[in-house]
Amino acid sequence: MLNRKDYISDQEVKWCQGCGDFNVLKTMQSVLAKMGKTKHNTVFVSGIGCSSRFPYYMDTYGFHTIHGRAPTIATGIKSVNPELDVWVVTGDGDALSIGGNHFIHAIRRNQDIKILLFNNEIYGLTKGQYSPTSSQGCVSKSTPEGSIDYPLRPLTIAAAANASFIARTSDNDPKHMAAIFEAAANHKGCAVIEILQNCVIFNDKVHEPYNGPKQRKENLLYLEDKQPMFYGTDMALKLSGLTPEVTHSSDKSVLVHEVNTSNTSLAYMLANLSYPQCPVPVGVFHQTQRETYDQLLDKQQSKEKLKKSQLMRLLEQNSYVL
């Protein structure tokens, strides 16, 4: 039986002191050990960015690829050997800028890979430029007067691409993060997990207003299947037509969460909530089972093999000697 230490590589971890990535790394190592995963059957694939050093620090197989292309490499690995557990580690800049198309198509294909998207709303490795998820007004090295862009919300993209598993967690909540990682690992299909991650150097405490230890109780909405969407001391969410609204927990029209729905509409709505007008949802937004890319590929290849064998039998039956 393996333990967390068995997944620690001999490489020196080169992240800044206080970086949220440390918690993600330790949690992943613990989850794999707890689930009884084997090192020779596990692969981590990354692109470019601080988070992309992840494969070096896992004593498993791994690929450190090129900017934005980690889902492409992961797709190839899984197609060739469907028995492998394949994880993609990426950041908001890596996945949502140059890697945007690859991110979307990996999700819509529903290949059985797990995507960990570290969202610190900044480019860390290249020293603090604003990223696709940076908030309006973000002052960075590339936006000294404040960003005028509207931020991208990663999980709305996952929902629009019809992801079969959508979730969000925080780097400062290892217990919750472990539960989400385990759920994703058990899911058959493409899992997208946004991790609210802190860059202590270039965007410190960006998520602190809602996920800080003293703030999370009032500002995070912990999603539970079949349960009312209560949060804070006495708050909840309801729908007014198609628009989510904040209400009190005593309201009889409080929205009830449904994980296993036929579509991703609810997940899209939750992913599109804006703080501080609404709470920040964490947990599993959506999960459904449908055929994966790997299963469909196997079916197609099996049909081709059957056609070839039928053709050979036909040729043999009609062969003759001159």
Rank of each mutant, 00 (worst) to 15 (best):
H286V: 08
K226V: 11
I193T: 11
Y130I: 11
T156Y: 09
L297Y: 10
G128I: 11
I113S: 00
T292Q: 00
V200K: 00
L270K: 06
P82C: 04
N260H: 12
N23E: 03
D6G: 15
D225W: 12
V24P: 07
Y210L: 00
L322R: 14
K114G: 02
V259I: 15
C19F: 02
P281F: 00
P132H: 07
K305V: 14
K303S: 06
I104G: 04
Q11L: 14
G62W: 01
P151N: 08
N110P: 10
S30T: 13
R313I: 10
D85C: 09
Y7E: 00
V45N: 00
G212C: 00
L270D: 05
C190H: 00
E208S: 05
H40K: 13
L221N: 01
V254G: 03
Y61C: 04
V200W: 01
P213L: 00
V200L: 02
G189C: 04
P71V: 02
V86T: 00
F230N: 06
P55Y: 00
I193Q: 07
V80K: 04
Q287L: 08
V256P: 09
A33W: 11
G18E: 02
S134E: 07
P154E: 04
D10N: 15
A271I: 05
V284M: 07
G36C: 13
E12M: 14
I166D: 06
K127R: 15
R290H: 07
A267S: 13
D204Q: 07
I122W: 12
K188Q: 08
Y7P: 05
E291H: 11
P279V: 06
N186R: 11
S302Y: 06
Y150F: 11
S319Q: 12
G20H: 01
C199T: 06
M58W: 09
L152P: 13
Y150D: 09
G49H: 10
G36S: 10
S142Q: 08
G47F: 05
V246E: 03
K226Y: 10
R153M: 12
V24T: 11
F22C: 01
I77K: 01
Q289V: 12
Q215P: 05
L32W: 14
D85E: 13
K299L: 09
V259L: 08
S274V: 14
R53P: 14
I98T: 10
D6H: 14
I201P: 05
P144D: 07
C50W: 06
I48K: 06
E194V: 15
T233W: 03
V321F: 14
M235K: 13
S249W: 03
Y275F: 15
C16D: 12
S274Q: 09
S135C: 13
I66W: 04
D59R: 01
V13R: 13
N162G: 05
Q129A: 10
T133I: 14
V13P: 11
A236E: 03
H207Q: 03
L296P: 06
L220T: 05
K34S: 15
Q295F: 11
S302L: 14
P281D: 01
N186A: 07
K175E: 08
Y268E: 08
Q289F: 13
